[in-house]
């Protein structure tokens, strides 16, 4: 495999053995993320107390990039405050669309392995879906989609 490949060992490992995979008893924030184009689906549950994300879990069917992104995201935001999570959401989004200078200051740490998706425009959505879903869960929107919600076909799909 070439080194530029997004499929680095960390990502493959999180795909094989996703962290925080499963359901959460007494979750108080919840969201489902869906990418109708490739069928990726992430079901995210959080237990937030005051400002703190105490516990977090996800489930779903998805490609390796999406699953590893969800796994590493949950491992990173667990125990963090809402505002720290919001910062990470913003930085992650900027990174995968190529708007973040990784040499400058940021808080992404190991999440920087996803920087390579900026060269794979069709896969940006896969990496970003868990983060959109986290944002929605924090706002407690029920369903997010990588496609516009107004489109009735996609909305129908997200419910399917």
């Amino acid at each position: 495999m070439n080194l530029k490949s997004i499929y680095q060992e960390v990502i493959l490992d999180h795909n094989r053995k996703p962290r925080n995979y499963g359901t959460l008893d007494n979750a108080n924030h919840h969201a489902v993320g869906h990418n109708p184009l490739c069928g990726d689906r992430i079901d995210l549950a959080l237990h937030v107390e005051g400002e703190h994300i105490n516990r977090i879990a996800f489930q779903g069917e998805s490609c390796a990039i999406c699953k590893a992104s969800a796994s590493m995201m949950t491992a990173t935001v667990k125990g963090k405050s809402r505002s720290e999570a919001e910062t990470l959401i913003t930085e992650f989004r900027e990174m995968v669309v190529g708007d973040l200078d990784l040499a400058g200051p940021h808080h992404l740490g190991r999440l920087a392995v996803f920087a390579g998706v900026r060269d794979l425009p069709t896969r940006v959505k896969c990496a970003i879906l868990p983060w959109h879903t986290l944002q929605a869960a924090l706002n407690s929107d029920a369903i997010v989609s990588t496609e516009t919600a107004e489109d009735s076909i996609h909305t129908a799909n997200s419910k399917a």
């Binding site: 490949s5 490609c63 390796a64 990039i65 896969r123």
Partner: peptide, 12 residues
């Protein structure tokens, strides 16, 4: 292996 990963890896 999800088909999208197959597509990306074959593209490489």
């Amino acid at each position: 292996v999800h088909p999208h990963d197959v597509g990306t890896l074959l593209n490489q």
